[in-house]
């Protein structure tokens, strides 16, 4: 049979209600399939093209600009209720190419491909000269802060579960305060905090109804005086068990 190239269905606008409806479905799909970091929200529809689909419906190609929210992917809060991260916190944006089909008002995502990157240092410096620039996730100070914070969190209450690090998701140096700030996700193990003290190597990620994810914010301030102790602070939120929710990729990549 003769191959007929797809014809452009019509010339849609990026802010057309139909394009927006498709973009919302695409962003929900992207959030559902996130493997790292934070849930995102739609910032701008860059491009859209519709192609005729036989026998009916259409194929939609979208280019979306998304921005990071403050909800880590382990946070059960729906993405639409999450707060978009402020630009002053060195926001991270993502460029996503999405292919989807629409039939009778129903959308189905076929493929997404996203690339995320922080606001460029130059632009960030211009828009917020005194703000703290994001550090690399493997920055030694960030990593040390996270490990010290998790140790402290596990030690704070010997009656609760013992937690392991799932991933470091953000970190930056606090230049004026001579310190470090970091955010990270955690998961509980099958050990109590007391048991983990002596047999940490035997502790594995909890399973079934006992599985709980958490998200922590930690800061470390180096003391100005030589003889004074440095100051650590850590706050973690542990979420209720979410039936059917697994983050195997995070567990396999970072914990095991």
């Amino acid at each position: 049979a003769e191959v007929v190239p797809p014809t452009v269905h019509k010339v849609p606008g990026c802010d057309d209600p139909e394009t927006e409806a498709a973009a919302r479905v695409a962003v929900a799909y992207i959030n559902k399939h996130l493997k790292h970091g934070y849930k995102v929200d739609l910032n701008r529809i860059e491009k859209v093209r519709y192609f005729e689909r036989r026998p009916h419906g259409k194929i939609m190609d979208l280019e979306l600009d998304v921005v990071e929210t403050t909800c880590h992917l382990v946070d059960p809060l729906p993405a639409e209720n999450c707060t978009v991260r402020k630009r002053e916190e060195h926001a991270v944006e993502g460029d996503c190419d999405v292919k989807m089909i629409e039939v009778d008002g129903h959308y189905k995502v076929l493929r997404t491909k996203c690339h995320s990157s922080p606001d460029s240092d130059e632009d960030f410096q211009k828009s917020c000269p005194n703000c703290n620039r994001l550090s690399r996730l493997n920055d030694t100070d960030v990593v040390n802060t996270v490990h010290a914070a998790l140790k402290e969190y596990n030690a704070q209450n010997t009656t609760h579960d013992h937690y392991k690090l799932l991933e470091i998701s953000r970190g930056h140096h606090l230049h004026l305060a001579r310190g470090v700030y970091a955010e990270f996700a955690i998961v509980n193990t099958n050990c109590s905090a007391q048991h983990a003290k002596e047999h940490e190597d035997d502790c594995h990620v909890a399973t079934g109804d006992h599985l709980h994810y958490g998200f922590c914010k930690a800061s470390f301030h180096k003391s100005a005086a030589e003889d004074a102790a440095d100051h650590h602070e850590v706050h973690c939120t542990v979420y209720d068990h979410q039936p059917g929710v697994h983050h195997h990729h995070l567990i396999h990549e970072h914990v095991e």
Binding site: P12, G13, D41, D65
Partner: peptide, 23 residues
């Protein structure tokens, strides 16, 4: 009679608006 059509009317309105900020 021939009527000149506006090109602007046929141009797609993309990219769309920023919902949060311009990065």
């Amino acid at each position: 009679p021939l009527v000149k059509r506006s090109i602007l009317a046929a141009l797609p309105e993309c990219p769309g608006r920023y919902r949060h900020y311009d990065l």
